[in-house]
Write a protein that binds this DNA or RNA. Sequence first.
DNA 1: AAAAAGTTTGACCGAACGGTCAACTTGTTT
DNA 2: AAACAAGTTGACCGTTCGGTCAAACTTTTT
Lengths: 220, 220
Amino acid sequence: MNDAVHKTSAEVDPASGGRIRQRNAALILSAAEKVFAASGFNGASMAEIAAAAGLPKANLHYYFGTKEALYRAVLTNIIELWLGETHGITPEADPAEALGAYVRAKMRWSRERPDASRVIANELIHGAAFLTPYLEDDLRRLVDEKSAVIEQWIEAGRIAKLDPRHLFFSLWAMTQTYADFDLQIRAVLGGGPLSDAEYEHATEQVVAFVLRGCGLTPRG
Amino acid sequence: MNDAVHKTSAEVDPASGGRIRQRNAALILSAAEKVFAASGFNGASMAEIAAAAGLPKANLHYYFGTKEALYRAVLTNIIELWLGETHGITPEADPAEALGAYVRAKMRWSRERPDASRVIANELIHGAAFLTPYLEDDLRRLVDEKSAVIEQWIEAGRIAKLDPRHLFFSLWAMTQTYADFDLQIRAVLGGGPLSDAEYEHATEQVVAFVLRGCGLTPRG
DNA sequence: AAAAAGTTTGACCGAACGGTCAACTTGTTT
DNA sequence: AAACAAGTTGACCGTTCGGTCAAACTTTTT
């Protein structure tokens, strides 16, 4: 009952509060992202997350209330990153440069935050109950905007004639596959985690493929 | 104890047995694929699968023993389809025709068996504990073979210079995204399930993008 | 330094789950 | 039609899980 005061403040703004609260909330969020990515929402247990965070289970409930609230907090943290990185796609920009930078940024994201990508992927495969508002509002608006830019490029003959929306689907798929289906890639390439050089090679392959697919050349 | 006779026969060869066994096993497998795709291994409950199959829960255990065994049976059923469709990629074939056919086949698979694709995707995102042998043996061997073919094409100047393995990663990602991340695509395109015409359009977009990306033209 | 607010923790609870079982019915064989 | 195998089913069991709580402890405020 009297605990409601704490819980409410945590739910409204998880980043607020004193040093201790902020530090522990971050600790829990980080552990939760890892465990949710590895096991999915249902497969992950609060006890497992607590162990990963090095805290007793009751502590997680103190900060986040319920498992679902913790999951939403993890997703909210990720979504901002997920929608970003399209700022280079403008009517004035050079198509090859802008698309190349976008692909590289996406590949970097898959490299540096694979767990974040996996959480999103998992959520999309299953109902995406919580993600739907973001998909239908923010993401759709973003794609509408950037598609208009690409259509201008097409009309100006600066890029091959294609459906911009399906181009985005392909770009997301090609880049995020290096995070989501990492295991498949490792198995085919024959072994452990990709080295920096291997990942750089992968990035350049995707960039080159995309630019050619858009009727562009890396140089010029 | 005496039930072990039934279970053993079911585990060794789920497709064997009398009419009733075959019919019910197929019913359960179909329901299980749907539920596993929608909820993942951990999220799916035997009771839910039983309800979807229209059978009492104990019945599933009679045919498949454990939840894990049922899951393995579902995966085994899918893997054969998943590895197929590369037969058109041969040294003598026309690259544009062969790759176009492969992409179209993959797109068709995403359209007709989205649940199967989602089960695989889910398994890959999480540890793929059960899939790993197939990845490291069958899939790797298949990719090695087909990569050699594509390298021949490259040396003969019939296709752009690229790393065949990463080409396959991109092809799988681009096509399976229409099954796995269907929700994202629907949200961006603004609404319900894709019509046949819309899906055909998507297929042609992907085919054109891939062929251009490989330095090929749809005609000639 | 006392009071208040914030934080920690082990023990506990009800619900849901995978799995078992024995009694029963249906199908098959001879 | 008798005997046996195959299939069905509701009730039940132990475990695990998300969540609660009260009591203790620590930090901040005054």
